[in-house]
Simulated assay, not measured.
Amino acid sequence: MAQGLDGLSRPGRPGRAWVLVPIAWIIAVSVVDVLAPPHIHLGPLLVAAPAVTPSFGGPRTVGLVAALAVCAQTVIGVLRDPDELLSANHEAQIMALLLVGTSLVVFCVIRERRAKELRQVRYVSEAAQRVVLPPLPQRLGPLRAASLYLAAEAEAQIGGDLYAAVRTASGTRLIVGDVRGKGMTAVNDASLLLGAFRVAAHRPASLDELVAYLDRSVCWDLAEPGETGRSGETFITAVVVEIPDRDHRVRMVSCGHPPPVVLRDGRPLTVDARHPAPPLGLGELAAPRYHVETFPFEPGDLLLLYTDGITEARDSAGTFYPLTERIRGWTEHDCDAFLARFRRDLLDHVGGHLDDDAVMIVVERPPEL
């Protein structure tokens, strides 16, 4: 279940019946103005008709209403001053309506052009996310999985958070990470690490050897021409896990990343690394040793892998999202059902807007029959 790309279709406008509102206003003002005493002039109120039309109409609708307002002002002038045809006052009002109507049409054209550009940007970002971060398959051998990606910026839809899963001959390997920084540089670093993981995770190397290779891949990228000065400033926190098909213990290497959580019968168990390694990309500076740690993952358990965009999400009072406290007592054993509830709970906590991208991966080991 991959989220975070909602509302990409063109937003619909209210029904065409709304155009009757400014037209009725024009008719009402015109009738009252013609019947009113000579010293009362209601013509300036006609400008309200084209002024409200952009809220539900496009350039053509606005132009039509503005033209009707100009015609109405002309008719009012002719009927009120039949001898002089049009007074200077009515001519000034007509010119004002023409100016306002033209300005509103131009505004609507620019607005629709920018809306089209925004739709194109969202379409491209959706395609980029599906290439770089395709949703996890629902089945990973005997495991079930689901993924949630929530972008902080609706226009971007993709950032430096990353995840991937690879099947091996004996199990499943997963990575969840977070690139320091934002923008296209973070996306580039994330795609590089994901590519390296997808290629190397199939090999029969041990988990610590795999993580060492991923660290070298990030360091090599920082050493490329044009990347001068990024060494030591760019890094990627990550947790890499290996879930055997026939063993109920998960192997893990943590590189400065938030710890996984195992949800067992409604009780969240945080898996803190006893020997965490530094983030990927700092290997040349820290010369790390990667310790493989294990923890139980029994049938019926849910394994939660996530980024700090979740645990550092704040509510209006500045309180961080307390992940383990919020999910305590949740008894969902289905990945999709858990993520649906979690997504609602997280967005309720932050008031509907995240300050940072957030990823949650849920892996379920189904109960043995």
Results as ranks from 00 to 15, higher is better:
4 G>S: 05
10 R>P: 01
15 G>Y: 09
17 A>I: 06
20 L>D: 07
21 V>I: 15
23 I>A: 11
26 I>Q: 09
26 I>R: 11
27 I>L: 13
28 A>I: 12
39 H>F: 09
43 G>Y: 08
47 V>A: 04
47 V>T: 09
48 A>D: 05
50 P>H: 08
52 V>D: 11
53 T>N: 13
53 T>S: 14
56 F>R: 03
57 G>M: 08
62 V>S: 06
62 V>G: 04
65 V>P: 12
66 A>L: 05
67 A>L: 15
68 L>E: 08
88 A>E: 13
89 N>V: 08
90 H>V: 15
95 M>Q: 05
96 A>W: 08
97 L>H: 01
99 L>M: 09
99 L>A: 15
102 T>K: 03
110 I>E: 15
113 R>S: 07
116 K>A: 10
117 E>G: 01
118 L>C: 03
124 V>W: 04
129 Q>R: 15
131 V>K: 03
131 V>P: 01
132 V>D: 01
134 P>E: 09
135 P>N: 14
136 L>Y: 05
136 L>W: 04
142 P>K: 06
149 Y>P: 02
150 L>M: 04
156 A>I: 06
160 G>I: 02
161 D>R: 05
162 L>K: 15
163 Y>W: 13
164 A>T: 02
166 V>T: 11
168 T>Q: 00
169 A>F: 05
173 R>I: 01
173 R>K: 04
173 R>V: 03
174 L>K: 02
175 I>D: 06
177 G>H: 00
179 V>P: 07
184 M>N: 09
184 M>V: 15
185 T>N: 13
190 A>I: 02
191 S>D: 05
192 L>I: 14
193 L>V: 06
195 G>E: 12
197 F>V: 01
202 H>K: 07
206 S>T: 11
209 E>S: 15
216 R>E: 13
217 S>W: 05
217 S>P: 04
218 V>H: 08
220 W>I: 10
220 W>C: 07
222 L>Y: 08
227 E>C: 12
228 T>N: 13
235 F>H: 09
238 A>N: 05
239 V>F: 11
240 V>E: 05
242 E>S: 12
245 D>P: 07
245 D>Y: 12
247 D>A: 10
247 D>V: 14
248 H>I: 12
248 H>N: 15
251 R>I: 10
252 M>I: 14
252 M>A: 10
259 P>Y: 11
260 P>I: 01
260 P>C: 01
260 P>H: 00
265 D>M: 14
270 T>F: 08
271 V>L: 09
281 G>W: 12
285 L>I: 11
286 A>F: 06
286 A>Y: 09
287 A>K: 12
290 Y>G: 02
292 V>D: 02
301 D>P: 06
301 D>C: 11
301 D>M: 07
301 D>N: 13
301 D>Q: 07
302 L>D: 04
302 L>F: 07
302 L>S: 14
308 D>F: 00
309 G>T: 00
311 T>M: 00
316 S>R: 11
322 P>T: 13
324 T>C: 06
324 T>D: 13
324 T>P: 08
325 E>K: 15
331 T>P: 09
336 D>F: 03
337 A>H: 12
340 A>M: 05
341 R>K: 13
343 R>K: 14
346 L>K: 03
347 L>R: 07
349 H>Y: 08
356 D>I: 00
364 E>L: 02
367 P>A: 06
369 L>G: 02
